[in-house]
């Protein structure tokens, strides 16, 4: 069980959180093609390595935040706000 550093509450056990999947998705406008909309809905990278994803501290402060996590080692490299830009 991972120990996830909530930016608001500090490190807590993983079972206090839910993962919302890949972050920084751009929600397309209404007039995009079906292909573009389908890609937004269904197609995700599945990297071996660093993955930017969003988590919610659902059994805590209730806040969503972004995390950069290594999918191989589960190392969490950083956490940052939903409105922060993509980290370099």
């Amino acid at each position: 069980m991972m120990h996830i550093p909530c930016p608001w509450c500090g490190a807590r056990d993983e079972n206090e959180f839910v993962c919302g999947g890949t972050s920084h998705l751009q929600r397309p406008a209404l007039d995009v093609s079906d292909e573009v909309w389908g890609a937004y809905l269904f197609f995700r990278d599945n990297p071996k390595g660093v993955h930017l994803e969003r988590w919610r501290h659902v059994h805590g402060c209730g806040q969503w935040f972004n995390a950069a996590r290594n999918t191989l080692t589960h190392e969490i490299l950083s956490v940052y706000r939903m409105t922060d830009p993509v980290p370099q």
């Binding site: 919302g20 929600r27 969003r54 919610r56 209730g62 806040q63 969503w64 939903m82 409105t83």
Partner: peptide, 13 residues
């Protein structure tokens, strides 16, 4: 309520 929070915090920020 989870959907409300997720859309509010993550998309309609």
């Amino acid at each position: 309520s989870a959907a409300f929070e997720e859309w509010l915090q993550c998309e309609f920020t």
